[in-house]
């Protein structure tokens, strides 16, 4: 799940309270959420974007046309969001750094079965726990074969993104190790910037990858600076 800054003013069409997926809403969601699904962080084309009510309509009918309740999802996540009679409230992707501070999202190295780990930083944090459970469901193989294939595709893409980022980090580290001249240091910085671009808000799966590999970016940056100081 990502965190973003939602634009303040609600799209105009919502005021008519007739539809929550007019073009102005879709365009704004697409822009505010960096063209990503807020749950799985896949890039979604504008025409495939679906509008999700974070707090579902059947429990919060009063929020049906409320700008703050609308979030963009990909088709698969929208289909796969579990339907509860009493849905637990999820974290709000637009409430500052709530997602980053309350939720742990990881690609684990140690577990061979489930490589994805989502958990709350604080076990008593109900919203974070519910969000983690939902994200885990969305990243796990579903029962239905066709959906399973699509969910597999999502996991494959995340895996590829992880591979590409670790590749870039590796070359940044190598460059930092043997940096002697100013040019070498600059080259190492360039590689590191490349890695940072993969963790930028508009990059696919960046929240997940940040929590998995973000520490290495900082460590390599420190290394380059020490090398430069010598």
């Amino acid at each position: 799940m990502i965190d973003v800054t939602r634009s303040d003013l609600a799209p105009e069409s919502l005021a008519r309270r007739q539809s929550w997926n007019d073009d102005d809403v879709l365009l704004r969601l697409h822009a505010d959420f960096h063209g990503k699904c807020y749950l799985c962080e896949s890039k979604v084309q504008l025409r495939n974007l679906q509008v999700d009510h974070r707090l579902p309509r059947h429990t919060h009918p009063e929020l049906s046309h409320d700008w703050s309740d609308l979030c963009p999802t990909c088709g698969l996540c929208n289909q796969r969001r579990p339907r509860y009679a009493e849905p637990p409230a999820l974290l709000d992707p637009c409430a500052g750094e709530e997602v980053r501070t309350r939720l742990v999202q990881r690609l684990c190295l140690s577990s061979s079965e489930h490589r994805f780990r989502f958990s709350a930083r604080d076990v008593d944090d109900l919203a974070a726990t519910a969000t983690a459970a939902e994200l885990l469901t969305l990243h796990s193989p579903p029962h239905n074969a066709a959906k399973r294939a699509k969910a597999k595709e999502l996991r494959d893409e995340i895996q590829r993104a992880h591979e590409a980022l670790s590749e870039t980090l590796m070359s940044a580290w190598r460059a930092a190790q043997c940096a002697e001249t100013d040019d070498d240091v600059r080259a190492a910085h360039d590689k590191l910037d490349e890695a940072r671009a993969r963790l930028a808000p508009d990059a696919e799966f960046s929240a997940l990858l940040s929590s998995a590999l973000g520490d290495l970016v900082d460590a390599i940056a420190l290394m380059i600076n020490q090398q430069a100081a010598r």
Partner: peptide, 17 residues
């Protein structure tokens, strides 16, 4: 990691660090 598997590369990097 020479055969390009993300996990292997990450572990190699963490070991190097």
């Amino acid at each position: 990691s020479r055969r390009s598997y993300g996990v292997a590369r990450e572990i190699q990097l963490r070991m190097a660090m």
